[in-house]
Design a protein around this nucleic acid. Sequence first.
DNA 1: TCAATGTTTAGGAAAATATCTAAATTTAGA
DNA 2: TCTAAATTTAGATATTTTCCTAAACATTGA
Lengths: 84, 84
Amino acid sequence: MNAIFKALNDPTRRAILERLRAGPATAGAIAEQFQFSAPTISHHLDLLRQADLVTSQKQGQFVVYTLNMTVFDELLGWLYQFKF
Amino acid sequence: MNAIFKALNDPTRRAILERLRAGPATAGAIAEQFQFSAPTISHHLDLLRQADLVTSQKQGQFVVYTLNMTVFDELLGWLYQFKF
DNA sequence: TCAATGTTTAGGAAAATATCTAAATTTAGA
DNA sequence: TCTAAATTTAGATATTTTCCTAAACATTGA
């Protein structure tokens, strides 16, 4: 839970998640959309992966990142305790 | 949105929210449940209030904090974009 | 009015975070 | 095999965050 909220507590990382809604993308393609350096984006992706919000698969020299929806269920479960 | 995720990115603050599920409580009553000093808890409550996750009313020398559920809807809305 | 109680504000120290550049690693392809 | 491209790792710095103690503020009630 800690890792999830930590990962979500950054506008760039949330924007990356929103980008991945459109489908998987390579680290480079993701980095292009932001003004930050590739290492900075790589670090953000690492935090998202630590929270299991994304998965990554190496494809040749590329690394493809994919949104992992299952973690959102855990988050929704936490939030719903406040609704009822 | 930023303020909400910032407020939720701390285990003590999340515990405070869970405490308030049981009903409103004074700053002092909340502080008693944790090992931290009163000023520290006061600061956490301030961040929760900035995110509008709680409201506060002064009642005499006490300040009563109440969970504000309406913000959770905003959060749920953000999360649901990933589900569909 | 004065002392006690509840809470917040101020100021500061230690730890965590976000960012950068430079360097290392891995793979593709000439 | 060598070079170029994609990505990550390492190391450094600036900012933010969390926590503390001391002080200030506000309210109650003797």
